[in-house]
Design a protein around this nucleic acid. Structure first.
Length: 545
RNA sequence: GGCCCCAUCGUCUAGUGGCCUAGGACACCGCCCUUUCACGGCGGCGACAUGGGUUCAAAUCCCAUUGGGGUCACCA
């Protein structure tokens, strides 16, 4: 058998979607497993939506995942228009394609009519009278080119399904291959480029299954070989059981808003007011699941209802990076969405996956994307990762999160932070828990609930304990984890106070909240001066409260 | 709605006619560990969608029903 050549062919309209990432991964895995080639092609024939920025982001995401492509000069469809046109001229000459003149509005009307008559809309060649043609010319209409799909049965073998998929003759339809703007449609570009690039295996989502009938008809007309087709399952959202989509994030915000308004008995008007979004806009959005908040509106609303970026379901590869996942983990998890190596094996390195990958172990049922399990893979990964590996990971995380105070840390400090956080699940968790260590004292924010609970409650019992701890700290000469531990243990035994009662007020004083890495590690990291300064500031706040 | 695809614990899955009183992982529930949040340890709950066939034998094969998903663009 000749060499396997696979490809990933995204359209550059934004960051890489996890669904796309999985498709890319499967293609990459197949190529690597067989010692074949994995090629990249940019499908930028939609001039209105494709941007250079998006292409850049896409490539960055792909590189981050480690899915290196083998064609140094990857293909841009927009640069191949002349090639497509020449082939389209050939089809025209041979009577396998023709010009069609309907406007989008006319087509819509035809579709609507078909729907009303409860029959499927099938476009077949129509005759235009001389009058029609004159009118089109007067109106300055532009034509599209449609391909004549032979009215016969179309059939292809799907290697994942393990069977033939058939389209009956009556469903044949003359589809557009060149748009009015002169660009080829997806169908045409794919077929020509796959052939030119020598693609042997097409692994793509099941949403493309029906397109395949168009593609094989075109291949026949153009005299191309047919690649092997494998249609992958569709990854479903746990939110609504439908195709994983960017919209899920918006849906989560809407759901949270509704809960929030119910529990706080807030009216949409006042939510709109505090968020700074027009009332009509907000209410309309609340009542219309198909509507989405803009990127500017989202954070405003989220802030009011207490949602963080990290609380939103990750959809784009970039989201996973920002939230502190490592590419190996994402890849591992994605591979298991629709594929299994068997033998109860789950956690694998990239090399393991390359070795085990095979088409006949691909599953066809649609999996729901289970983030909890992904998170647990992440936990296991970090637990086993060497310190140097973790350091590399957190630096990558910080590059994607420039606002994190941890960016001020030296490598040694980062290593220390990682060490004291052992058992963490995501890098974002390390960030959240440890940011206070790198924050200037005056930028530290105190959480009111934590102050109430651990300092003020029970006649300021916590504040009193904290004052006692301050005295202990003043006397500590060996400001190390063990030195601090010894001193505090002593104090605890002498004063008959449990460590819990002593540690929590200190934690609040130095971190601003009730959660931090282990207390002695944190204190040792901060140093004596900062510790005392923060305790003093906290004590002052407590006494004035 | 037409067409296409699918169907094992809540979720991801192992299982390819007898090894299955169905295995693993995540989640969940107990208990333990513990200065917070986590991590960890031990134990537990939990599935072959339903109905018909085929067969000595069915989670595994066939059919129907039900349920889910996809798709019906000058977007890819």
């Amino acid at each position: 058998m000749s060499t396997v050549v696979t490809r990933f062919a995204p359209s550059p309209t934004g960051y890489l979607h996890v669904g796309g990432a999985r498709t890319a991964l499967f293609n990459w895995l197949l190529a690597r497993h067989t010692g074949g080639q994995f090629l990249l092609r940019i499908e930028d024939t939609d001039l209105a939506r494709s941007t250079e920025d998006a292409t850049r982001q896409l490539l960055e995401d792909l590189k981050w995942l480690g899915l290196q492509w083998d064609n140094a000069e990857f293909v841009y469809q927009s640069k191949r228009v002349a090639i497509y046109n020449k082939l389209i001229d050939g089809l025209l000459d041979r009577g396998q394609a023709y010009e069609a003149w309907e406007t989008p509005a006319e087509l819509d009307a035809m579709r609507e009519q078909a729907t009303r008559a409860k029959r499927p809309f099938i476009y077949r060649r129509r005759q235009y009278s001389a009058d029609d043609m004159k009118r089109f010319a007067d109106e300055g209409r532009k034509s599209v080119i449609r391909f004549i799909q032979p009215v016969t049965e179309h059939r292809f073998h799907d290697i994942v399904l393990g069977k033939d998929v058939v389209q009956p003759p009556q469903e044949s339809q003359d589809f557009v291959i060149r748009k009015t703007d002169g660009m080829p449609t997806y169908h045409f570009g794919v077929v020509v480029d796959d052939a030119d690039m020598g693609i042997t295996h097409v692994l793509r989502g099941q949403e493309h299954a029906k397109n395949t009938f168009n593609h094989i008809a075109l291949q026949a007309a153009l005299g191309y070989d047919r690649p092997i087709y494998a249609h992958l399952s569709v990854m479903l959202s746990p939110e609504n059981g439908e195709k994983l989509s960017k919209r899920d994030r918006d849906g989560r915000i809407r759901k949270r808003c509704q809960e929030w308004m119910r529990s706080t008995k807030t009216q949409p008007e006042s939510l709109a007011g505090s968020a700074g979004v027009p009332v009509e806009r907000l209410t309309e959005w609340l009542n219309t699941p198909t509507q989405q908040l803009s990127l500017e509106e989202q954070p405003k609303v989220m802030k009011i209802v207490g949602l963080k970026e990290a609380d939103l379901p990750e959809i784009m590869v970039h989201d996973f990076r920002k939230n502190g996942y490592v590419p190996e983990v994402l890849n591992n998890f994605l591979a298991l969405q629709g594929w299994s190596p068997g033998n109860d094996l789950e956690q694998m390195t990239m090399a393991d996956m390359v070795e085990k990958f095979s088409l006949d172990r691909i599953n066809i049922a649609n999996p729901k994307f289970n983030r909890e399990k992904l998170k647990s893979f992440s936990t296991d990964y970090f637990a086993k990762a060497a310190p140097e590996q973790q350091l590399v990971a957190i630096k990558d995380y910080l590059a994607a999160n420039p606002q994190s105070p941890l960016n001020r840390a030296t490598d040694e400090q980062l290593a220390d932070v990682l060490r004291m956080n052992r058992g963490y699940r995501l890098l974002s968790e390390v960030d959240e828990k440890s940011a206070f260590l790198l924050l200037p004292d005056e930028q530290l924010q105190y959480d009111q609930a934590a102050l109430d609970k651990f300092l003020l409650k029970n006649d300021r019992g916590g504040a009193i304990a904290l004052a006692g701890m301050r005295d202990v700290f003043v006397g500590v000469t060996d400001w190390s984890i063990t030195g601090l531990e010894t001193a505090v243990q002593d104090h605890s035994e002498r004063t008959q106070q449990g460590l819990g009662k002593l540690a929590q007020p200190v934690r609040v004083a130095i971190s601003g909240g009730a959660v931090s890495p282990p207390i002695f590690d944190s204190l040792a990291f901060l140093g004596k001066d900062k510790t005392l300064a923060r305790i003093d500031r906290c004590l002052a706040m407590a006494s004035s409260a």
